[in-house]
Amino acid sequence: MNIKIVRRPAGEAPEWVRDEWIGLSLPLTSKREREREWRGLGVLTGPRGWILQLWALLSGKSFKVKGYAVNAKTAVDQLADRSPSAAAWWREHTPHMLRGRRYFVFDTASCERKP
């Protein structure tokens, strides 16, 4: 299962970086194939360590986002084929997200689900 990005996704990255997602088809993992409501933390402003992330979630510093979760490393690797400069922005500013264990949540309004 995939999602296709059809509009600029919400987020903390600059608009030009988020615009580069438009048109990409990104894979969903089997555990995260469905749309759902997630608790999010900013990729730039959110805490980086898991203990601080847990604390942010428990203390109400997260926000709700309805959408689809995509492995962040996989997404940026695919973005690099289309826009090396946008992928470089992610690698420079969010290396903590790109180790293969973290996810970007693309909001429902920005994507379409594809079989």
Rank of each mutant, 00 (worst) to 15 (best):
N2R: 15
K4D: 01
V6Q: 07
R8V: 14
A10M: 12
P14I: 05
V17Q: 01
V17S: 03
R18D: 04
W21I: 06
I22P: 05
G23V: 11
S25F: 04
L26P: 02
L28W: 09
S30N: 12
E37Q: 13
W38C: 03
W38L: 03
L41R: 10
T45D: 09
G46F: 06
P47F: 05
R48G: 07
W50K: 10
W50N: 08
W50L: 10
I51G: 01
L54R: 14
S59V: 14
G60D: 09
F63A: 11
V65D: 03
A69S: 10
A69Q: 04
V70N: 00
N71F: 03
T74N: 07
Q78C: 02
D81C: 01
R82F: 07
R82I: 11
S83L: 01
S83I: 02
S85E: 15
S85Q: 12
A88Y: 02
W89A: 04
R91Q: 11
E92A: 12
T94P: 01
M97Q: 08
M97I: 05
L98Y: 04
L98A: 05
R101N: 12
R102W: 13
F104E: 01
F104K: 00
V105Q: 00
D107P: 06
D107N: 15
D107Y: 08
T108F: 05
T108G: 00
A109M: 11
C111A: 15
E112R: 14
E112D: 09
R113K: 15
P115Q: 10
